[in-house]
């Protein structure tokens, strides 16, 4: 999973559904901890802006 920072609105909706704690919202930046990501795509579903990409 990666974040397209040009599209991201840093709302943190993706962080709220990431059960593996692979996402964090720090100020106006979503950070991904790749080693924790299980590829469930929950973040892609809730993102209002299509900012998460595989």
């Amino acid at each position: 999973m990666r974040v397209n920072y040009e599209r991201c609105g840093y709302c943190g909706a993706c962080v709220g559904v990431c059960k593996s704690m692979a996402l964090e919202l720090i100020e106006n930046r979503i950070v991904i901890y790749q080693e924790r990501c299980k590829g469930c795509k929950a973040c892609m579903i809730v993102c209002p802006l299509k900012a998460l990409e595989e």
Binding site: G16, V17, M21, E24
Partner: peptide, 18 residues
């Protein structure tokens, strides 16, 4: 907030279903 990481760190389940 919706990110709800802190309670999760303490072992309470609060991450949401997409």
């Amino acid at each position: 907030g919706v990110e709800s990481s802190v309670a999760e760190m303490a072992g309470l389940r609060c991450k949401k279903n997409p």
